[in-house]
């Protein structure tokens, strides 16, 4: 479809879209910003530098970074195997990779408790996964699992396996082939996938709320902190943390946008 200058009908359509996007996306953001800074900048600063709040933010960041590293490593492996190999059940497995995007986080949390809870199927599992941050990490990895895989797959499929095979024929090791042939090709897609993973992990609430139990000081993430603050009527705390997470999300959005330009160029 060719790009055109606005016609009269085009202006009408554009207006409809701008109003819709404005009411749906921008108005809520504006409401959050104006409420947080209702009494100036100081209450916001006080609320987010509160040690308790900082603690929860620190936990969220730790979870997000660890989950991103893990999903980056495993995601490359999974994508490569799903593109280059053929095996029985591959189609189904490939389709199911999207499951974490549509399964309710609450239900995943519930599954973890069924497995590792006090009376769970695997209650004697050596690592304590229910009501612990390790359990929250596993769930964070789960909810953000598809992003890296789905970004890398099309790139690998597009480049074909000829270059890799040529490298082996010329005597390169698998490791060398990966670093010299595969990695440079998937670099931008991988970065993009990691950014998406970070965004998703930082904002996870349902799953970690179920499995972490939200014990203050140990398993309370930033999102759980917002939820508890709302219930405790600590509105300054809730809005400030929500705004902070929102700002981080917008920063991530800007990075995504720049990366997309790179991806298209590369």
């Amino acid at each position: 479809m060719k790009e055109r200058n606005l016609s009269l009908g085009g202006i009408l359509l554009l207006l409809v879209v701008l109003i819709y996007a404005g009411v749906l996306l921008l108005a809520p953001v504006a409401a959050l910003v104006s409420n947080t800074f209702k009494d100036g900048f100081e209450p916001f600063w006080k609320a987010i530098t509160d040690p308790e709040a900082l603690n929860t933010l620190w936990l969220s960041m730790r979870l997000a970074v660890l989950a991103s590293i893990f999903n980056a490593l495993l995601g490359v492996m999974v994508a490569w195997v799903l593109v280059r190999h053929n095996f029985f059940g591959k189609g189904l497995l490939n389709a199911l990779v999207d499951l974490p995007l549509v399964i309710s986080p609450v239900i995943v949390g519930y599954v973890m408790i069924v497995l590792f809870g006090r009376t769970g199927w695997l209650k004697d599992f050596p690592i304590k996964l229910a009501f612990s941050w390790e359990g929250m990490l596993v769930l964070t990895v789960f909810v953000s699992l598809p992003f890296v895989i789905r970004e890398i797959q099309p790139v690998l499929a597009g480049m074909g396996k000829e270059q890799e095979e040529a490298a082996y024929t010329l005597g390169a090791s698998p490791w060398g082939t990966f670093w010299r042939i595969v990695f440079p090709a998937i670099r931008h897609a991988l970065t993009y996938g990691i950014v998406l993973t970070l965004a998703r992990s930082l904002g996870e609430f349902g799953a970690v709320a179920v499995i972490g139990g939200g014990t203050q000081g140990s398993t309370e993430s930033a999102t759980i902190y917002i939820y508890r603050s709302l219930n405790d009527r600590n509105y300054a705390g809730a809005y400030s943390m929500a705004l902070l997470l929102g700002v981080i999300a917008i920063l991530i959005l800007i990075i995504m946008n720049n990366l997309r330009v790179h991806k298209r160029g590369g």
């Binding site: 709302l230 929102g246 800007i254």
Partner: peptide, 22 residues
Amino acid sequence: NSLIDLPFAIPTLVTGVMLTLL
């Protein structure tokens, strides 16, 4: 065009807070 992706980036809990405030 970049604003469209906002819902992908923003935590859903924050969406709830924003809608409550609006």
